[in-house]
């Protein structure tokens, strides 16, 4: 029995539009072990959210997964019907989103919304569900949960709402929690509280987390492994300490150098020139080649596969035999 909880294999998802098929995710492969936090980092449009929506089978139309497998505890989620999927969502896999105001229903009290999950998936009766809801609110650090349970979302601050979302997501003790930019809309001091809470609960409830973010700092704080996505592809996958010590892919390196940090003082920031290509004009070879300073002819012609390199995985010709050493 493998200890991989979630295995995404060569997942391709795209959109069927008037301009033809647009490949938003191109053969994305990711592995999340039991009890682990996998951070997926990338800029807007890199496909990180689409990856998580694919796992939940919630891709917005006209999008569709067209290839690959998503194995969750050995089952391929892409082959499940809507009915079976609904039994998994919120129960075995649950999700928290970036904007806690828009993902909570404003006309129901937070207690009712959490109780709904419990009653649906665990068939608890009203009284038990309410008691469990109060327990969950206490667990996520909401003061006087007996009163707060009847509050409506607008009565809570952003940080409190995100705590409610976490309580709701964890109420059925899911095996996998997908957190899509869970702290992006929050202030830094609140972000620190929420990250600490998530890590603490992960330990206590033995939940695995797929953490999606644009912020390398959040990855450094919270993740065990990191996958860097660029333009719908995983370009690097590594253990987190190793990644921050020595990022391999030119994009990862560029990303790391372009961020001002508290630890270092730089006169000027290094930049990655240009912008992410749109789906309509994706380069034929490596998707990063239009912005890469090290590109060779090979990069323009053929997309590099994800290869193993010193315990990490990287998608760059530089680490293969076909790379021509620089003439210097």
């Amino acid at each position: 029995m493998s200890d991989n909880l979630l295995e995404i294999k060569e997942l391709s998802t795209g959109f069927f539009t008037e301009d033809g098929f647009l490949p938003a995710l191109d053969k994305v492969s990711l592995t999340l072990k039991k009890g682990e936090t996998l951070g997926v980092v990338g800029e807007s449009g890199s496909g990180k959210s689409l990856t998580s929506l694919s796992v939940m089978n919630l891709i917005p139309t006209p999008g569709k997964a067209v290839g690959g497998e998503i194995l969750f505890k050995g089952k391929n989620l892409l082959q499940l019907g809507e009915e079976q999927m609904r039994a998994i969502r919120g129960n075995e896999i649950s999700m928290i989103f970036q904007e806690p105001m828009t993902s909570l229903n404003p006309v129901y009290s937070v207690g009712e919304q959490i109780m709904e999950v419990l009653r649906l998936h665990q068939q608890l009766d009203k009284k038990v569900a309410r008691a469990k809801t109060i327990d969950m609110l206490r667990l996520v650090g909401i003061p006087s949960p007996e009163k707060r349970v009847d509050d409506y979302p607008h009565q809570l601050s952003g940080g409190m709402r995100q705590r409610v979302m976490i309580a709701m997501a964890l109420s059925c003790q899911p095996d996998l929690l997908i957190a899509d930019e869970p702290t992006t809309a929050l202030d830094v001091t609140t972000q620190a509280q929420i990250l600490d809470l998530m890590l603490d609960l992960k330990e206590r409830l033995q939940t695995s987390i797929l953490l999606i973010t644009h912020d390398l700092g959040v990855i450094a704080e919270a993740a065990d492994h990191v996958a860097v996505m660029y333009a719908g592809k995983v370009v690097e996958y590594a253990e987190v300490k190793r990644f921050f010590r020595e990022p391999l892919h030119p994009y990862s390196q560029g990303l790391m150098n372009s961020i001002p940090t508290l630890e270092q003082t730089r006169e000027r920031l290094q930049v990655i020139r240009g912008v992410v290509p749109t789906l309509q004009q994706m380069p034929k070879g490596c998707r990063f080649c239009t912005r890469c300073d090290e590109k060779q002819t090979l990069c323009e012609e053929e997309a590099p596969p994800l290869i193993g390199y010193q315990g990490s995985q990287v998608s760059c010709w530089k680490y293969t035999e076909r790379w021509e050493p620089s003439p210097r």
Partner: peptide, 25 residues
Amino acid sequence: RALISAIPSSSPEIKRERILLKGDL
């Protein structure tokens, strides 16, 4: 101090002593 301590560090090998603030604004 709390504000500075709350910023995620730029490497998993640097751990900042975190000052957690009570409550909300």
